[in-house]
Design a protein around this nucleic acid. Structure first.
Lengths: 194, 194
DNA sequence: CGCGACGTTGATTTGCCTCAACGATTGTGG
DNA sequence: CCACAATCGTTGAGGCAAATCAACGTCGCG
């Protein structure tokens, strides 16, 4: 329980300086979870009560479109936060599912507890400000890529920047994240080999 | 100068409670700008030094793709913040331009000044945490729409939720924001009338 | 071993883009 | 206040990127 929270503390310290004696108090606000591959942390239609930090493994957030296919809109690997923030902020039902891509270890904090944590530790307020700022920055860049690149370029770019991730994750999930079909991904990979 | 900052104070008070006597001190960190239609606040290739809050009017952020056409990735109307946050956070060159869609009044704060402001007023740390959290939430939803909807549905949805905005803004900018061509937008509108 | 999940391949279809030309509207200087 | 240009919106023909659908190979796992 304590050793597995080390990556979280390191992540906090990348953004704010915080006395070591505060760390246990901070950690006490979280729940440690082990989730098995394919297990869901958030179900479509349920109130999104929880914000998750991935200590080890990989989660994804997806929804199911009218045609019944899953559309992944976000992955979270080590040191990333994930939640449906619109539903989380308003404590409303979510249209998304959050699912473990691999068996994972996560820290979970529900909305009210997070509010308490932030009120109690101003440094955590700053930490989350930095985390969300970075997340939004990444999101801006992503939207740019979606507009700038063809689907083929999207994949080549993704493969170039996250080669280990492409190994780790089944191809149909990569396709789902980049917004195209597994069949087309197959075609792209065939081209790239020759 | 003072009266035009009222909307900003109101916006702050929607997220945090803050004593009125702090407001002048906070405001002193900002520069008040009037920008004319089509005037640029950030130029492609320049270091992104500034974060902008729109008091009145409308800004947009765009880039120019390989084919030389402008791709709008964000609008900011009254009470929205806008910047290229990746470039802003790292104080690096931006690939974007920020331009006034309408003649506008904005509050501007550069990176170092914002850091000072946040250090001095913990309430502002919370304020920006909320602002970025909301921005990221909106961005998640936007990515969902981009995956979920056809271009036609994107427009109909946009028109339904922001009818006044569609009136206010030239159509080719709406098309550029939604990721398709003015010609295709024309086709969509023709269909909708019949 | 046999089943289900995953990846590949090819034929066909389609949503949307490209390009070019033409109205409509706006704004601006004489 | 008008003339002219520039900007913006529309229309249509043709083309391409990527989806759809169906079938088949392959691998891991119970």
């Amino acid at each position: 329980m304590y050793t597995m929270s080390v990556p979280f503390f390191q992540h906090i310290k990348k953004f704010v300086s915080i006395p070591d004696e505060d760390l246990p108090g901070i950690l006490s606000h979280f729940q440690v979870l082990k989730v098995k591959k394919k297990q869901n942390l958030l179900e479509n239609g349920m109130v999104c009560r929880t914000n998750y930090f991935v200590v080890k493994g990989c989660l994804r957030m997806f929804f199911i479109n009218d045609k019944g296919t899953e559309q992944t809109i976000q992955f979270a690997i080590e040191n990333w936060w994930i939640s449906d923030y619109l539903a989380f902020l308003n404590q409303k039902e979510s249209n998304f599912c959050i699912q473990a891509v691999e068996t994972s270890e996560v820290l979970a904090i529900d909305f009210q507890t997070q509010e308490k944590l932030l009120a109690q530790y101003p440094a955590m307020e700053k930490y989350f400000r930095c985390v969300y700022q970075k997340a939004f920055a990444a999101s801006q860049l992503r939207v740019k890529y979606m507009y700038d690149f063809s689907k083929e370029d999207l994949y080549l770019h993704f493969e170039k920047w996250f080669p280990e991730f492409v190994q780790r994750i089944p191809q149909y999930l990569v396709a789902s994240y980049l917004g195209f079909t597994p069949e087309y991904l197959s075609e792209i990979r065939k081209k790239r080999i020759s």
